[in-house]
Write a protein that binds this DNA or RNA. Structure first.
Lengths: 233, 233
DNA sequence: GGTCATTGTGTAGGTCATAAACAGAATGTA
DNA sequence: TACATTCTGTTTATGACCTACACAATGACC
């Protein structure tokens, strides 16, 4: 068989759909279905809960049968991320509005599926949805008039901001809820050794729930202003 | 014994140093030493290689003995991150220069120890070095005249940018080196379905090594401009 | 009707984190 | 000095995880 594809089995299936006209028994499930169950597990109990064994058991299959659909755990995770991010549609407004939409949609997906932040493929994602997101973001910035290199760097900054904001919100909501983290900090932060941090803490900047949710918008505002300035140059 | 600390054993040891005047046998090693060996393993072969068993074996100890120094694997990882980030010293120049220093130092540490990006504590870091970094960054922005809330959001944006840039550089250098990733993309990116991405790819924006290294500076420029504009307001 | 690629399964091995119980060492106290 | 206490490192054991391999059943194609 002439298999020159360098894509792992799972991700390849996301692009090409179920292969047709094959011999042997019909598959009883699909990469999409596997991904959905894995996502449900990860949403409920974190990425570690979406083990091959757990996913297979949810589907009424054995662990090993999943390897007929996915090359490895990493492949499964790449598939999960691509499916969880889903498709993206932007309106047709100004570049600034569209980039805000892009960032907010990114952030929203990360908040809906926080375990995405725990998936660290050593290679860049190549699933259809992930590339569609990249394409959409690049499209906005190229339309705005940026050169490809700057557009790429700028989109990277926006994505980095969205991801890091989601990460921080998650950390503070997990640990802020029962105030364990606040106690830890008080155990250790002292006004002499860490004056600036102490000042920010007493100002309550980190404990304000709404404050956390606007981190993204503040940072986004800074970035968009910077991009606008570069466009006028 | 009155142990009211909420900090895990390993991180607490980073703050207080080795406890003195204790009974029982002298410890044969220390949290710092453990961290150094774990870091060496992670630097060489990735975070997964720094398992408790591997670290213990490097020290000539059994796996279980590490639990005398560290509460859990997560605790060990928090310690590793804090030690690997190390201390930070900033010069005394303008806020803009100092924030650039902060971001470049952050980025440099992440490039030296890329596995830091793979560590996802569910709670925010509370080690001495991590908090010193935060304090230093906050200090720059507060000195510049930002209010605590905006300072916090801005530092978060800078950190997010540095981390995401490091992540991207790592992904592209791992996969770009043998061009496997480029082949995967060509297998799938088509000028009709993903026009903007196709344009950026043919412009070579993603393959240029120097381009990757300046992503941080481009994004940083955008953010600093945005902060400067906010200060003049 | 036979060939054979493909599917799900059973087995088995290796790694990992971590709990529990124990023997020895160093300190403090009587 | 003798004993009690407390901390050390170890041994042993458990359960979860990923995955390589061999096998039997399936069904499309020649």
């Amino acid at each position: 068989m002439a298999d020159e594809s360098t894509l792992p089995r799972g991700v390849r299936a996301l692009w090409h759909g179920p292969e047709t006209g094959r011999r042997g028994p019909k598959p009883t499930t699909s990469v999409q279905e596997i991904a959905e169950h894995a996502i449900a597990l990860a949403d409920a109990e974190g990425l570690e809960a979406a083990s091959l064994a757990a996913v297979a058991s949810r589907l009424g299959l054995t662990t090993m049968s999943l390897y007929r659909y996915v090359d490895s755990r990493d492949d499964l995770r790449a598939v999960m991320v691509d499916v969880a991010m889903g498709p993206l549609t932007l309106t047709r407004r100004s570049w600034r509005r569209r980039l805000e939409e892009w960032a907010h949609a990114d952030f929203a997906q990360l908040m809906a599926h926080p375990w995405i932040l725990d998936v660290h493929d050593p290679e860049p994602p190549v699933g259809p949805n992930m590339l569609a997101w990249t394409d959409a973001g690049m499209g906005v910035l190229l339309d705005a008039g940026l050169d490809p290199q700057t557009a790429s760097s700028s989109l990277l900054a926006v994505d980095g901001l969205a991801r890091h904001s989601a990460q921080i919100v998650r950390q503070y909501s997990v640990s802020g809820a029962d105030a364990a983290w606040a106690n830890r900090l008080r155990e250790v932060v002292d006004a002499d050794r860490l004056p600036a941090l102490h000042a920010v803490l007493t100002a309550g900047a980190l404990e304000d729930e709404d404050g956390l949710e606007t981190d993204l918008d503040v940072g986004l505002g800074l970035l968009l202003d910077g991009i606008a300035a570069r466009l006028e140059r």
